[in-house]
């Protein structure tokens, strides 16, 4: 997941290095560092925005390591899902327990169904649905779609997934 963090550094040498070390120690991948040296907080500290990718499990270790070094954390904004995918389902979607279909994706812990549009033209005719799925990474999105295809096979639903180059897994 991607984390954007506003931290506050004391205006003495070596502080930035001290702040970034925990990110690399816990195998985070630094995306950007914006050092607002010209600004000062009312507390006299320098605001810095750090963006990095890390495994969700390591975030707490990074935070406590920063706190141990006496670095103030003003704001943490985590974006867990930054891959979005769409799929279309055709068949008897509602009667084959749509809740169960959605739950299977939501229960993975790495992907969620975030939007559902359903079209049911006539009773007993197959319905069509578009599902939007958010996932932690491209790989996770691909496995969520694979999982959906397995469930769909059991329920005799047709899954229309994005082309391979769209899923980015070429």
């Amino acid at each position: 997941m991607r984390v954007s963090m506003d931290i506050e550094l004391k205006d003495i040498p070596g502080q930035l290095l001290l702040a970034l070390r925990p990110v690399s120690e816990f195998k985070g991948n630094l995306i950007s560092v914006v050092h607002h040296h010209e600004k000062r907080t009312p507390r006299g500290t320098i605001p810095v925005n750090v963006v990095f990718e890390t495994k969700p499990d390591n975030l707490n270790s990074i935070i406590s390591s920063l706190e141990d070094s006496d670095i103030g954390i003003a704001r943490i904004d985590e974006k867990r899902y930054f891959e979005h995918g769409a799929v279309i389902l055709i068949g008897h979607i509602v009667h084959t327990d749509i809740q169960d279909t959605i739950d299977t994706i939501d229960n993975t812990g790495y992907a969620e169904v975030v939007d559902l549009n359903l079209s049911m033209p006539k009773i007993k005719k197959p319905s069509s649905a578009s599902l939007k799925i958010d996932a932690v990474s491209k790989e996770h999105l691909a496995s969520a779609i694979e999982l959906l295809k397995e469930i769909a096979k059991k329920k005799d639903l047709l899954v229309i997934e994005p082309i391979k180059s769209e899923l980015g897994a070429v």
């Binding site: 769409a86 279309i88 055709i90 068949g91 549009n117 079209s119 033209p121 197959p126 319905s127 069509s128 649905a129 578009s130 939007k132 047709l158 229309i160 994005p162």
Partner: peptide, 17 residues
């Protein structure tokens, strides 16, 4: 098995089937 509804839903999301 493709339905016109599926094509419309796809189109609303910016896709063709």
């Amino acid at each position: 098995k493709i339905t016109p509804e599926a094509l419309m839903l796809a189109q609303n999301d910016g896709y063709v089937i």
